[in-house]
């Protein structure tokens, strides 16, 4: 065989299928992380101003 088939070395990402919905694991992780950050932003207390703490 004179030629060699050139193939991509980048593997296809894993996907999650749920009915008609298909999403890559990478995108799912990003979306879930955003939801977690959103919830934490609502729940976590904001640090008080250092100058105001003493007063």
């Amino acid at each position: 065989m004179s030629g060699q088939l050139v193939t991509s070395t980048v593997p296809a990402g894993a996907v999650v299928q749920w009915g008609f919905l298909t999403i890559t694991v990478a995108n799912l992780i990003v979306i879930l992380t955003m939801i977690v950050v959103f919830v934490l932003a609502i729940l976590l207390p904001f640090p008080a101003d250092r100058d105001e703490e003493g007063s």
Partner: peptide, 10 residues
């Protein structure tokens, strides 16, 4: 203040 907010700034 909204939930999670620090006490209002004096």
């Amino acid at each position: 203040a909204p939930p999670g907010a620090a006490r209002p700034t004096a």
